[in-house]
Design a binder for these strands. Structure first.
Lengths: 240, 240
DNA sequence: TCGAGAGGTGTACGGCGTACACCTTGGCCG
DNA sequence: CGGCCAAGGTGTACGCCGTACACCTCTCGA
């Protein structure tokens, strides 16, 4: 060892490390080499640090992935305010799609995640807000969101009912007061999602949203559209 | 040890074991405890056998999962022949959905798989065949299949272009003769997929299918449908 | 000056997929 | 009938993984 050696902790470029840097490095690694290679060990090596060091900044690997998702989703391009609803939805959905194409790991990551994260909820709220701002009833907003879900994400995320990731212990049931408090907080942050929830509750007192109906609703929309195109001789472009 | 002990190899209920039994046990385990608990070690324990024994029947874990997928997909209920196209598509898509609901691990498994398996291709071919049988041009069949993709599977599977699972070595490029031979075999087994491919090739000489166009095509179909519903005051059922 | 907390470290455990060499057994052929 | 051979189950081992837990070492405010 030379007298100029670094202190006991190896010289790491500068500032110690923080959650944002860990998440950004995770996104960069996933972009470069795919989600499968994002392991705590590999990511820590990229950061010049020992694996366990990451646990000072993320609580576990699920938290890391959730943070990476939120980092990207929060960066979705937002259209200008005041667009006509159709254009607003269109631009938001296409912005989401752009990000999904730029980060191919994002869709599988969102699909595999068991919980919706704040940025994801915010995005869904913004899309619902465009429709509501166009005068849609929350009933129609609800069903349009379901139909769009597959477009926005490539799959249909349920905003609330989260499958409990089979094999994990059942989470504690929140009390009625806790539920009401959560709803209140929700309504503040995600008013359009709350609008959908409330509208649904008035129509379906048992609270469940009829998944099968959602599915057939969208399917029939598409089939009707196909029938119209067929009848009018639509084609995508002149054949060679 | 008593004189009545079993022979050196432990008594396994009967017939030795075979690929079908391994796949069926995999499906049963995934149904019971989720895809994540399907490990070679755990599955082998369920079968009363040592982990490496499975490798005599599946080539690796990917092959196991692919076999499980095909086992379920091949069991999709097929509607009677001679239905009007709309009803034929409807029943096939809903049959696929039923299976996806019965086997919640199936969708993630198909999404994670890098290759379409034969039963999956056969299902897609059958749906395309319903449309073609209804007089759809293959141009419209093509785009309708893309639009339906998200409905059929909950995501949009590309039938051919498979993302190469980042980090894996590039597969060998097939020769032109091999490609033509594969196309010939495809056309025999999956005539409607072949029809789409050929129609696309005539419209887009460079061979690529315009993913962005597909996406916006479906999105605009949905948005038009939403606009119509909105204008006519549609609601899903009378409010409370 | 010193104590505490933030943050990086080292070791260890149990689980994973699977390569490789081995052994047992049933059936076929000479 | 004897011997062989392949099919199929076994045992060991390796290098990954996530992460629990105890520890060490700076930095900074009191």
């Amino acid at each position: 060892m030379t007298p100029t050696d670094a202190p006991t902790t190896p010289a790491r470029g500068s500032a110690p490390l923080n959650r944002a840097a860990v998440l950004a490095a995770g996104v960069a690694l996933a972009d470069r080499e795919g989600l499968a290679t994002v392991s705590m060990r590999r990511l820590s090596a990229d950061l010049g640090v020992v694996p366990m060091a990451l646990y000072k900044h993320v609580s576990d690997k699920d938290d890391l992935i959730a943070g990476m998702i939120d980092l990207v989703v929060a960066g979705f391009a937002a259209p200008p305010l005041g667009l006509e609803w159709r254009e607003g939805v269109r631009q938001r959905v296409l912005a989401a799609r752009d990000a999904l194409r730029e980060h191919p790991w994002l869709r599988p990551a969102i699909e595999a995640a068991s919980q919706r994260t704040p940025a994801v909820l915010a995005h869904m709220n913004a899309v619902a807000g465009e429709l509501a701002g166009g005068g849609f009833s929350y009933d129609l907003v609800h069903h349009a969101m379901h139909a769009l879900g597959h477009r926005i994400w490539g799959f249909s995320p349920e905003a609330f009912s989260t499958r409990p990731a089979p094999g994990s212990p059942a989470p504690p049931v929140p009390s009625l007061e806790e539920q009401q408090a959560m709803m209140g907080a929700m309504a503040q942050q995600y008013p359009h999602i709350a609008g959908v929830v409330i509208d649904t509750a008035t129509r379906h007192p048992l609270g469940a949203c009829d998944d099968q109906f959602e599915f057939e609703f969208t399917l029939d929309l598409l089939l009707d559209a196909f029938a119209r195109l067929h009848e009018t001789g639509w084609e995508s472009r002149a054949a060679g």
